[in-house]
Amino acid sequence: MFEARLLQGSLLKKVMEALKELLNEAAWDCSDAGIQLQAMDNSHVSLVSLNLRAEGFDKYRCDRNLSMGMNLGSMSKILKCASNEDIITIKAQDNADTVTFVFESPDQDKVSDYEMKLMNLDQEHLGIPETDYACTIRLPSSEFARICRDLSQFGESMVISCTKEGVRFSATGDIGTGNIKLAQSAKVDKEEEAVVIEMQEPVSLTFACRYLNSFTKATSLSKSVQLSMSPEVPLVVEYKIEDIGHVRYYLAPKIED
């Protein structure tokens, strides 16, 4: 028996928004520890890694590990039937071929349940080593979304360069060039509005704007976002999900021919 009850159901709705542009389907791996999902997009350029810890749920029960393959388009349709205020429960029997979503209104006067067929997915998993990155940049998530949107107008690729002075985002294309420089915040009233840079060595990498823009669909999950970079390795873009977990995106850089 698997059962996970989330008082703040809107979080699951936001998680779905953060996944569905990159992934058509994914396996939700459930264990004692919580729910994890790891999947690459079709082109194997980016990877989404979601972690929702058991402690973050109001009620969590997982008698045996199970991997539920879900069509995210279908799941998204179902979650659209939940109100933002609803409490959401995900339930499945052991070895079941369906999963049930239960939506309860806050005062319990409306309860809906939706059963969805599970899929057999044979997905590749990647082993992602713990890495000490040469640069980590924390910035407001809305600022990052704005930068990705603005620079996408100039070209397909964006260069992210980090030095101790700050971080520079640049794109070049037919109409010209755009450069956005962010300096580290000198002082801030609110932690989530800060730009904080930790740098071991300067890094400059080029990434496809299309994927970065897809990552920013997670903006509503967190006020800030962390970018981690090292020379010639994939970028990590991490959004914390309140006190329940995180969604991380990995993006392979463009490489010189």
Binding site: E124, I128, A252
Partner: peptide, 14 residues
């Protein structure tokens, strides 16, 4: 020129 890298060339497939 530049080409788009793929993640499976950076990380081990389990």
């Amino acid at each position: 020129g530049q080409t788009q890298g793929r993640l499976d060339t950076f990380f081990k497939v389990l």
